[in-house]
């Protein structure tokens, strides 16, 4: 490499490092410094509501309910944002691990949701892969959680998780019999805090698929939604040759 190119590369790397530090500081400020005033709104409105609720008319009661719910929602969003950024900043080094263990752990974390919904889940025998085991578990957990959640009322979830061994990537598929995703929302649903459905029908923050995308970005992979006649099929890839050890 020429000396000029080398110095340009060094400069670009330096700028990148500065930007990264700035981004991390920004997220830290957002998640910590904002949470204090928010907590005040939340706690003091709860105190007022608890002490004086009997004297409030219906409208004031409703307004206090809105203050408390709004503040609660904002603090949940802040927590989610800092969790999202920690997927980058506090990531563990890659290692070789058994994917079956990772999925088993994800299923264990979801055990009450699985038994409550009466779901049946079929699994392939999965390979050993290179990656951040904790994050891959989160990834499976988010996708299985979605497959269990986005169902028509009264439907028992039927989920199958499979994989194919591609040349340079492991390809996984999670198929469900749920409500599916309309064509116009295919990109939106992967974005931070964006939701395909209304809060009233399916409560949630709109972070699950954003976490999944972020984790796969780090694993030089990608995630896609494949249209199916019934339900949704999410397909994701994880690069095979990740630096580890």
């Amino acid at each position: 490499m020429s000396a000029k190119l080398e110095s340009e590369l060094a400069k670009a790397n330096q700028e990148l490092a500065l930007l990264k530090a700035e981004y991390e500081e920004f997220v830290y400020i957002i998640s910590h410094d904002l949470s204090a005033p928010l907590r005040q709104v939340q706690s003091f409105s709860e105190i007022i509501a608890n002490t004086h609720n009997g004297n409030f008319d219906d409208k004031t009661k409703r307004h206090f309910g809105l203050i408390i719910r709004g503040a609660t929602q904002a603090s949940q969003m802040l927590k989610a944002m800092s969790y999202y950024s920690r997927l980058n900043t506090r990531a563990k080094p890659f290692a070789l691990f058994d994917c079956n263990m990772s999925i088993a752990k994800a299923l264990d974390n979801l055990s009450s949701l699985i038994s409550d919904s009466g779901a049946s889940i079929t699994l392939d025998d999965f390979p050993e892969i290179i990656g951040d085991e904790e994050q891959i578990t989160i990834l499976f957990q988010q996708l299985i959680h979605n497959a269990l959640t986005y169902q028509k009322a009264g439907t028992k979830p039927i989920i199958s998780i499979s994989f194919t061994n591609n040349v340079d990537a492991w390809q996984f598929s999670i198929k469900d019999n749920g409500i599916g995703v309309p064509e116009n929302l295919r990109e939106k649903i992967f974005k931070v805090l964006r939701r395909g459905v209304s809060d009233k029908k399916y409560p949630g923050l709109g972070m699950g698929l954003a976490y999944a995308s972020k984790i796969l970005q780090r694993h030089r992979g990608s995630i896609n939604l494949v249209n199916s006649v019934e339900g949704a099929i999410f397909t994701f890839k994880i690069a095979k040759e990740l630096p580890y050890g």
Partner: peptide, 8 residues
Amino acid sequence: LPSTDGKE
């Protein structure tokens, strides 16, 4: 908005 976006 959830579901179809405002711009859409």
